[in-house]
Design a binder for these strands. Structure first.
Length: 783
DNA sequence: GTGGGATCGGTTTTT
DNA sequence: CCGATCCCAC
């Protein structure tokens, strides 16, 4: 018997081993981390240390050892990361990979909530509000409450609500929290708590959850229903988390609860790459992790397989400047490599051209492919100059992030019809489409409906559905009834049609497609194509017929083989970019540094390295913020395998306004590197202060300034006139002068680039002149 | 209720 | 520059 057992163990070990040639690809620490048996595990992994590989192999290893794929919960932060991981696991372990509970926190919990949400009164067909929907709802509430949206900025209110949810502070708790209330008081926003409460109520009534709710409600259910918690604790025998340094309190609390029974929790992270503090991520989670799971086994992956020595050295020196860090040193056996190049260009446009030229040259000289290049920037808005330059050289490129396909107006419109079909109570979807295309249900009507809904405690849809009971005009009632009938007819066909047919049917019946088709402008055609593209993607979604068999209803919910419209909508709202679109075409990649995390490229350009842009102006006031920016820079440079360029521009447009920029402090922090300059440093002729006092302007003015137009001369500063190109510097006053002779500024209204100057000209009397960009427009006065 | 022109204000970063 | 909003004429 005993012999048998030994034999059996040996045999199965041998079989497993045969399947595991992949283990050969790992170094010792990596391998240990992969095969490490049960229990809590922390893998501290520097950039390029094979972190994703370890995580994927660990999962594959579990599967190969016979673990139930439905019992593995693997959480990532981006769809990109989870798809990449799934693909790699599939290669090793085959189809099982499709059954894993693997995805972003949001998508996995959304999937769980489809089943569990009814426990807290949500319908299982709840829709998901993206940030735009949420802000729009907040704005409506602010208006309804008679508050000023200049003081209660929807964006800020949204962020505050979001951070409350992520800290598990309920509206009730908020209302009793002295500290928070004082904060609001100080910011002149005493009603924030009320807004929070109403916002939650409204989402609930609309049967909608925002991004944070997907986490929050999961937590609420696990807390409130011990039986549910018990079920998931026993279901998920293994829990794995990627990019653990980016989890926030709420996310950590959920996984901590779930992993509490088996304690098989593996987290992978690197404090030096924590770049999401702004949405609540905290390094405390790592510290708490050690406390909450004392049995913890720690692995440190410090060998870098990605970059040259020079890059690794630069990264180390840079990150060591941070006070807040867990000391570690990455090292590499790779070649020494080339110098890191620092490049200054005269303007943002020339920065674009320089980078494009450089790519062109390297492609030619080193036989690189487009895929080998990435351009990384701090903000999405920076992509423009590079796009233009690359297009000029016919270099294909792909931009990740920014406005995603699914956030485009026309796409969201059609999606909103679908959302409304699935969940009639979705107020944001309703408001979006009820009068688009125009069907005579205008703002006034909508406002009234809103009021009735609030008064009677109904959703807007319920009011519409019983519109015959109201005293709207016959015309309005007809329009509304027709609309309601239409949506109901869509809903009735949900079960009879595939998601694709239904979507196409909706597009046709609502005349939305026709409306776009008739618009023959360039944008109109693009919009029409986007709708076609959307329909295509639904078709693809429907036809991707990989089916997992013999699974429970619970596991089926939201799985890849759920082809309902609702399932498509969920997938799509949790998608950020258009991840699906051809990864394989050979193109230069452009993205923010945030979305570059986890990726690597032979050649990387980190661009826009200017003070106030990177690090951003808002980050200069606290050490924490500055250090987060530095970690971001660390992430950026460690994406590079062999070539790294750091570029910055001497001048840059911002809202059409030309600004002079200085090199980022981070550039000085990169050691021993060649600096190459391109073009002349433009000595700012106009460098004078952004803020020139009015009196300076008055100097070019005729001597006898006639009197006095009643407006007092204000002491507002006026910005120097904006040249339309770095080369044509000419002040606005010079333009005006040429045109009208001499004059004097008597007052300035407006702000930003939309200044209006009332200027007196001897020949014409007072004129209002708009100083916008390089254009001068006479608005009033004279002839 | 609809559509056009004038006006105003805004840039981190992501699910 | 570009979207949201306000105001005014149909």
């Amino acid at each position: 018997m005993r012999l048998f057992k030994i034999l059996y163990v040996h045999l199965s070990a041998w079989v497993i081993f045969a399947l595991m040639s992949y283990l050969d690809e790992l170094n010792d620490v990596q391998r240990e981390a992969v095969i490490h048996s049960d229990g809590p595990t922390l893998i501290v992994a520097g950039p390029g240390s094979g972190k994703t590989r370890v995580l994927t192999y660990r999962i594959a290893h579990l599967l190969n050892k016979g673990a139930d794929p439905f019992g593995i919960l693997a959480l990532t932060f981006t769809n990109k990361a989870s798809e990449a991981m799934r693909a790699r696991i599939e290669k090793i372990s085959g189809n099982n990979a499709r059954s894993l509970y693997m995805g972003t926190f949001h998508s996995v919990f959304a999937r769980i909530l489809r089943v569990e949400a009814p426990k807290i009164g949500y319908p299982s067909n709840f829709t998901i509000y993206d940030a735009e929907d949420s802000k729009s709802l907040i704005k409506t509430i602010i208006k309804e409450q008679g508050l000023d949206d200049k003081i209660y900025k929807p964006n800020q209110v949204y962020n505050r609500i979001s951070s409350m949810k992520n800290s598990l502070i309920t509206p009730q708790a908020y209302a009793q929290d002295g500290e928070l209330l004082t904060e609001d008081q100080n910011q002149r926003r005493p009603a924030t708590g009320t807004l929070y409460q109403i916002y939650c109520d409204r989402c609930f009534k609309s049967g909608a959850m925002d991004f944070d709710d997907l986490l929050l409600n999961t937590h609420v259910i696990l807390e409130k229903f011990p039986d549910v918690l018990y079920r998931y604790q026993h279901k998920f025998r293994y829990v794995l988390i990627d990019e653990f340094q980016d989890t926030n309190y709420l996310q950590y609390e959920i996984v901590r609860k779930i992993a509490d029974v088996f304690q098989n929790i593996t987290v992978v992270g690197d404090d030096a790459q924590s770049i999401y503090a702004f949405r609540g991520a905290t390094i405390d989670n790592i510290l708490n992790f050690e406390k909450d799971f004392p049995e913890l086994k720690v692995y440190k992956l410090e060998q870098n397989y990605r970059s040259t020595q020079k890059i690794v050295k630069a990264a180390n020196e840079l990150i060591h400047r941070n006070k807040n860090q867990i000391k570690k040193e990455i090292w590499t056996q790779n070649d020494k490599g080339e110098d890191i190049k620092i490049v200054r260009t005269p303007s943002d446009n020339e920065e674009g051209r320089w980078v494009a030229d450089s790519i062109q040259e390297l492609k030619f000289r080193e036989q690189y492919k487009n895929n080998d290049f990435a351009i990384l920037y701090r903000t999405n808005a920076q992509s423009r100059a590079f796009e233009e330059a690359l297009r000029r050289l016919n270099i294909p490129y792909k931009i990740y992030g920014g406005m995603s396909f699914y956030q485009r107006k026309e796409v969201k419109d059609l999606l909103s019809y679908m959302k409304l079909t699935v969940n009639h109570n979705d107020e944001e979807a309703l408001k979006r489409v009820i009068n688009y295309p125009a069907r005579g249900i205008g703002q006034t009507t909508l406002d009234k409906i809103g009021i009735i809904a609030t008064n009677e405690g109904k959703s807007m849809w319920e009011v519409l559905d019983t519109i015959f009971m109201t005293d709207f005009s016959a015309r309005t009632k007809n329009a509304i009834e027709e609309f309601v009938m239409m949506i109901k007819s869509f809903a009735a066909q949900q079960l009879k049609m595939t998601a694709y047919d239904l979507a196409a049917h909706i597009g046709k019946t609502t005349k939305l497609i026709a409306e776009l088709y008739n618009d023959k402008t360039v944008e109109g055609i693009a919009r029409y194509e986007n709708i076609q593209e959307l329909l295509n993607s639904i078709k693809e979604f429907v036809e991707d017929d990989e089916v997992a068999e013999n699974i429970s209803a619970e596991d089926a919910a939201g799985l890849a083989n759920d082809k309902t419209l609702g399932s498509f909508l969920q997938t799509v709202t949790l998608l950020t970019g258009d991840e699906k679109s051809a990864e394989n075409i050979d193109s230069v990649k452009m993205m923010t540094i945030h979305s570059a995390k986890g990726l690597e490229f032979p050649t990387v350009y980190v661009v826009g390295l200017e003070e106030n842009l990177f690090p951003g102006a808002q980050s200069l006031y606290s050490l924490e913020d500055l250090e987060e920016e530095r970690r971001l820079f660390y992430v950026a440079i460690t994406r590079a395998e062999s070539r790294l360029f750091l570029t910055y521009a001497n001048t840059r447009y911002k809202f059409g306004q030309l600004n002079y920029c200085e090199a980022s402090r981070f550039i000085q922090e990169v050691p021993e590197n060649v600096v190459s300059y391109h073009g002349d440093l433009k000595k700012p002729k106009v460098h004078q202060p952004q803020h020139q006092p009015i009196s300076t302007f008055s100097r070019i003015v005729s001597p006898a300034s006639p009197k006095p137009i009643s407006q007092p001369v204000q002491s507002h500063p006026i910005e120097p006139f904006i040249p339309d190109d770095a080369n044509t510097l000419q002040t606005g006053m010079e333009v005006l002068h040429e045109k009208f002779g001499e004059g004097k500024v008597v007052s300035i209204e407006g702000s930003g680039v939309n200044k209006i100057a009332s200027i007196f000209f001897s020949a014409y009397g007072v004129k209002k002149i708009m100083l916008k960009f390089a254009k001068v427009k006479i608005l009033s006065g004279g002839n």
